[in-house]
């Protein structure tokens, strides 16, 4: 049994130590919002927050996730009201949408460390997340917009 906190809930999962967090979340905890894209940390579709840091769930073994605080897209906000999720909808960012939970979790990781990122900051932070449909320019726009919204909320 591996104990960890998923979206604020203390959870016990009967999984192998070497099982990547992604499959534990998807197949065992039945949280399918985090996506499989490569299984090698190459595409970012599986991005979740581990103790607040954007991390690739597909290469994080459960032995490492044990005792940690995990936030997935399902627990990122109550009902999609986070500024990033709002901005994503405002700019109609998604095409197929499959990579977007991972994109949003990576963007949230960026804004946490850098509340007012430049284009270059965004490019750097987001270049680990692949979108095959080609939504990059809109993601950039949405992150800028969300950053403004969030800084407005604070001031």
């Amino acid at each position: 049994m591996i104990k960890l906190t998923i979206n604020g809930k203390l959870t016990e999962l009967d999984v192998a130590d070497d099982m990547p967090l992604l499959w534990a979340l998807r197949d065992v905890a039945k949280l399918t919002g985090s996506k499989y894209g490569c299984g090698k940390g190459l595409c970012g579709a599986c991005t979740v927050h581990i103790d607040g840091q954007a991390s690739r769930a597909c290469i994080t073994p459960m032995s490492y996730a044990q005792g940690k605080n995990i936030t997935t897209i399902e627990g990122f906000s109550d009902d999609g009201e986070h500024a990033l999720q709002q901005a994503w909808q405002k700019f109609n960012v998604a095409q197929c949408g499959y990579c977007q939970p991972g994109q949003i979790m990576s963007a949230a990781g960026l804004l946490k460390n850098n509340p007012n990122p430049s284009d270059a900051d965004i490019d750097q932070a987001m270049s680990g997340n692949i979108c095959r449909c080609g939504t990059y320019p809109r993601i950039r726009e949405a992150i800028h917009h969300a950053a403004k919204t969030l800084s407005g909320e604070k001031s």
Partner: peptide, 11 residues
């Protein structure tokens, strides 16, 4: 707006 827009951003 996109029909599935909200479902996509909430997983």
């Amino acid at each position: 707006s996109l029909l599935d827009g909200k479902d996509i951003v909430t997983g």
